[in-house]
């Protein structure tokens, strides 16, 4: 693209949005687990340019994660079985948030737990931490009390978790949905009813890869989550279905590598997007996507990004 980008990068009024009560200077955020705690990218990416940063999922206690190998590349994607390794709530508040607070970019803390009570505790303890604009509630994690069924796979469990968090958090909550369900609209409606201020989707798709030579699985955990360009068409379909099922804002995630990918989600009805795996391939992906979206708006005569949201032309 030949467009040079805005004069004051990242602060074009054309791009600013309000999502679930959080003000973003543009609709492009870094997805949870793919941008660490921001510090890993600071030498390469101007964090002030991002619409938002979703931090690596946090649990109450530090988690060790799965044993390696944890990642494998597949056709136009990768499968990971990190196992939600994270520094834990205390270290997150003490060591990670103060760093992120320096930037003019909203930080959304991703949280997950094994029980509704753990979710509540996380929401409570993060509620008065300065520098956190909102929570992203990751319900693609196993419910310990229910034999490891994913919270996000059952409308009732999803509802319970979201209602619990909502009662303890004064800041906006976005609920991140798992695509590994039969009907995404049931879950989307359930979390909306429970008080979610927005939803984001998709998390990774359960997947697997085998080495035919050794006949061994390529991940020590055998199965993991697929991300990257390979999942984009599936993600787009799920976002489209969710957009049609709920009134609250929807954030599109899945395989976004380019401005055009992001535009597809926005046209399908997502108010904003998150960029994940692309950050590994091109650490500056978010910024390039922001510039590309803005160039598209200018070129096509849109005054504001909102005009584009849900503008899908159906014959």
């Amino acid at each position: 693209m030949t467009y040079e980008g805005p004069k004051s990068p990242g602060h074009s009024p054309r791009m600013s949005i309000d999502i679930a009560g959080i003000k973003l200077k543009n609709p492009v955020m870094a997805a949870s687990g793919t941008f660490g705690y921001g510090e890993e990218f600071v030498r390469i990416v101007d964090l002030n340019r991002l619409g938002g940063i979703i931090t690596k999922g946090i649990s109450i206690k530090p988690m060790e994660g799965n044993s390696p190998p944890r990642i494998v590349e597949t056709a136009s994607g990768m499968i990971n079985s990190i196992g939600l390794q994270n520094v834990g709530l205390q270290a997150f508040i003490r060591d990670k948030v103060p760093f992120l607070r320096q930037f003019k970019t909203p930080v959304i803390a991703s949280i997950f737990g094994g029980t509704a009570g753990e979710f509540r505790e996380l929401a409570k303890r993060l509620d008065d931490v300065p520098g956190i604009a909102g929570l992203e509630v990751n319900i693609s994690c196993p419910n310990v009390a229910k034999g490891g069924v994913l919270f996000g796979a059952d409308p009732k469990m999803a509802h319970l978790v979201v209602r619990t968090v909502k009662r303890s958090a004064h800041r906006p909550i976005i609920v991140k949905l798992s695509p590994n369900v039969t009907d995404i609209t049931l879950i989307a409606k359930a979390v909306e009813e429970a008080g979610a201020d927005g939803i984001s989707l998709i998390n990774t798709l359960m997947a697997m890869a085998v080495d035919p030579q050794s006949r061994r699985p390529l991940l020590d955990n055998i199965i993991g989550g697929l991300s990257g360009p390979a999942i984009k068409p599936v993600a787009l379909r799920l976002v489209w279905e969710a957009v049609n099922a709920v009134q609250i804002p929807v954030i599109g995630i899945g395989g976004i590598m380019t401005p055009e990918d992001a535009l597809e989600f926005i046209i399908a009805g997502a108010c904003a997007v998150q960029v994940g795996t692309a950050n590994f391939v091109n650490p500056n992906a978010c910024v390039e996507i922001i510039d590309g979206i803005e160039a598209y708006l200018v070129k096509n005569g849109f005054q504001h990004i909102n005009e584009l949201v849900g503008s899908l032309r159906i014959p």
Binding site: G33, T34, F35, G36, E40, F41, I44, K56, G65, P68, R70, I71, M78, N80, I82, Q85, T277, N279, F280, P283
Partner: peptide, 10 residues
């Protein structure tokens, strides 16, 4: 994947 310490894959 990332080489930067972010993905925890390595």
């Amino acid at each position: 994947a990332c080489g930067l310490g972010a993905c925890l894959g390595c």
